[in-house]
């Protein structure tokens, strides 16, 4: 029995070392999460009693379902666009073209800069009086009125891509860097042209990297808050909807907000689990190619 415990328990000092992290996790994540769950089952504004009304009201209303759908459209759209942008970019930056250091720096700029500032600049740039529309109206013929980008769904997707594509791009670049050059050379030796090497050797091998990066982009886009808050207009994804519930009505509707938050958390975890399975399968295929 003592042998069992010696093998399967955390030693005293190790436990002490882990204590701050565990405390932080429980105090700042687990307990708040639990509180949110409890709150979501309470009748609005009361500390006792149990009810499912907060969930049924949100899920049964067409508005609620539209909010969920919108969040998915935005997240999936921006993830797909990020992959389409990142893969060619990573392949280009792999060749040491002139100024590649500068372009690499460009890729990580949105990661470091506050999202709010990015959204503000994007609103200014893509607005009806911004440079984008100035360019369109002055240099593109047959375009009578400026294009509306701000406060539309495609505009939001574009903003998300600006802010969240670095996750996909950086992961793809590091997957490409760790790729063994000799495999490609072997492909070229047996007579594959550049396109075939890319299509049948490089892409399958970096697919796990691309997918892992796109998970990060998807999750960031799914939980995005600051950008849709100031650049969303009438389009309010889940995170903004939660904030509206506690900031606009008086008194604040904490239970309704908590119910939406729990729905959002469950959706995210479910999607993450699905995505991880896909990633694992893709990883297995890549192993078979190797």
């Amino acid at each position: 029995m003592t042998g069992f415990w010696r093998r399967h328990s955390i030693h005293g000092i190790t436990g002490l070392l882990l204590l701050p992290a565990i405390l932080c996790f429980f105090g700042l994540f687990f307990y708040p999460m639990l509180l949110t769950i409890v709150l979501s089952f309470r009748p609005e504004g009361q500390a006792v009693g149990w009810t499912l009304e907060n969930y049924t009201r949100f899920l049964a209303s067409p508005d609620g379902r539209w909010v969920i759908l919108l969040t998915f459209i935005l997240a999936v759209g921006s993830t797909a666009l990020s992959v389409l942008l990142s893969v060619p970019l990573a392949l280009t930056l792999r060749e040491k073209i002139r100024g590649h250091r500068f372009y690499r720096l460009m890729v990580i700029v949105p990661l470091v800069v506050p999202g709010l500032i990015g959204a503000l600049g994007l609103l200014l740039f893509w607005g009806t009086r911004g440079w984008f529309n100035l360019f369109l109206t002055q240099f593109v013929p047959f375009l009578p009125s400026p294009l509306r980008v701000n406060y539309t769904i495609h505009g939001l997707i574009l903003f998300y891509v600006w802010l969240y594509f670095p996750y996909t791009c950086v992961t793809t670049m590091s997957a490409l860097e760790s790729l063994d050059q000799s495999i490609e050379e072997a492909g070229a030796v047996v007579g594959a042209n550049r396109w075939q090497v890319l299509r049948y050797i490089v892409l399958p091998l970096i697919t796990p990297g691309i997918l892992a990066g796109s998970v990060l982009t998807f999750m960031a886009a799914f939980g995005a808050f600051s950008v849709p808050l100031i650049a969303g207009g009438d389009y309010r994804p889940l995170a903004v909807e939660i904030y509206k519930e506690i900031s606009i009505p008086i008194p604040a509707r904490w239970s309704a907000a908590s119910a939406i938050a729990i729905v959002m958390g469950i959706l995210q975890v479910a999607f993450l689990a699905m995505y991880m399975r896909i990633v694992r399968r893709a990883g297995g295929n890549a192993g078979a190619v190797r």
């Binding site: 994540f29 999750m219 904490w254 938050a261 959002m264």
Partner: peptide, 16 residues
Amino acid sequence: PRMIPPITYALGVAKI
């Protein structure tokens, strides 16, 4: 905490 959108536990943190 990195896998859950911050707003979901931010509600609880604010309450506490």
